[in-house]
Design a protein around this nucleic acid. Structure first.
Lengths: 245, 245
DNA sequence: TAGTGGTCTAGACCACAAA
DNA sequence: TTGTGGTCTAGACCACTAA
């Protein structure tokens, strides 16, 4: 399924290929949190690249918080942390597991509609172009945690609404059915007063506060694919991150 | 004032020394946003280090969003972006300038008080130890933008309250008077309903929503120095960031 | 002592941008 | 064509950890 060796004639640089290979081993759980990954010497041997190339890849994974190094001991898979959810694209399921909640999902609606100007601009399409809109209520330990409104450019992923998203992650369908992998995203984080129509759905009392995120997600080719609005119950959800000089 | 060459007998690695030198040129404005910085070949020549070492330093600055590279053209100082304020320690003044507001500050109070258990734990000190508390109203274009409550471990910086913080940045006093440089921080971001006592100060109407940040800042020696609460008017302030795989 | 990651060097060839 | 950054190699010596 995924390549295990570096294609020396590929247009992709060695370090990107090796990054994909190692990332995959972590994401697929072949290497578990806390596991030591093979030492640099072994990666050099296995993949037939220089130490600098190996270290370039490990640096990337360290920067993303996926692994950490200990001099004299080795390199280890990091335990998922809440900080990661601020800089890495993390699924709702992963996010909730890190917060030690049991995740759940209810589909509120799945419809086609023409793009409003505001959303069209963010997705770099024409106003009125068809969008697939998926609204989901997200649960944590059975209680409402957030509402997610996804708007997908329908021409990139026709028939996308013919799945049961209570069971299946949207991201996985995008990847397996349409070959679209979300590689990066930009988002805005706000605090808002809960709109009346969300009060009942989220099972909160007015006046209630929400942490509100608007996100544009891009494919590997940097094409905007999805516009997402997430309304989090502020009494149950907060964000963490680290700053440096 | 700041070293301009690499001390080849220092305990600090070359790349850290070079990082300090280049960071300083950017922060002091010697190199302005949009300026091309010297090409790698020149940095190699100037500082007598290898290309890998130069590139290691430039990689760090790129990761922090301070510079960007264009193949075939050169390396340039980045224009400050709103995204940076999510991962870099940015002063209120800088942050407002990036948002194209004119910043202003009013000191609400400056007092000494004993540490509550909650704050003491975050600052890794004993409950009841003396804290310097500085409360400031922050203005943008003359209108209230946020309230900042700083709690500093007083034994690290005695007499710190004997300055006029309407004029002088707290961070600068810490550095020049006490040799404390804030190098990293951890923060939590929440949405809250405005507490009644802040309503008037922020010139908002109830029920009002705030973006609320609690931050612990660490010195270069990783010692917690400051606990900070910031209450932002949600109608005027939001956060931006980028995510990746 | 053996094995790990941390730092550093001196080269090489390539792709891209501007003149 | 020249100069820039992008990728890659093959070595070296060091500091730290664990046995």
């Amino acid at each position: 399924m995924y390549p295990e060796t570096i294609d020396r004639y590929s247009k992709l640089p060695f370090y990107q290929q090796l990054y994909e290979i190692l990332l995959n081993k972590i994401q697929q759980g072949e290497w578990q949190p806390g596991d030591m990954i093979p030492p640099e010497s072994e990666l050099i041997e296995n993949y037939q690249v220089s130490r600098n190339t190996v270290r370039q890849v490990l640096d990337m994974l360290v920067n993303e918080g996926l692994i950490y190094r200990q001099r004299g001991r080795g390199t280890f898979v990091a335990h998922p942390s809440l900080e990661q959810s601020m800089t890495r694209i993390v699924s709702f399921t992963e996010d909730m597991q890190q917060r030690e909640f049991t995740p759940g999902t209810q589909v509120l609606s799945a419809t086609l509609l023409p793009a409003e100007a505001e959303i069209a601009a963010k997705l770099q399409i024409q106003t009125g172009e068809q969008l697939a809109c998926l609204r989901r209520l997200r649960l944590a330990d059975g209680e409402p945690m957030s509402i997610e409104e996804s708007y997908l450019v329908h021409s990139y992923c026709p028939e996308i609404l013919q799945h049961d998203y209570a069971q299946q992650p949207l991201r996985k369908v995008l990847e397996t059915d349409f070959g679209i992998r979300i590689a990066s995203a930009k988002q805005v984080i706000k605090a808002i007063l809960a709109p009346p129509e969300l009060i009942d759905l989220l099972d909160i009392k007015t006046p209630a506060v929400l942490l509100f995120i608007e996100r544009v997600s891009f494919s590997q080719g940097k094409i905007p694919v999805e516009f997402l609005r997430i309304y989090y119950r502020a009494d149950r959800y907060s964000l963490f991150n680290e700053l440096h000089e």
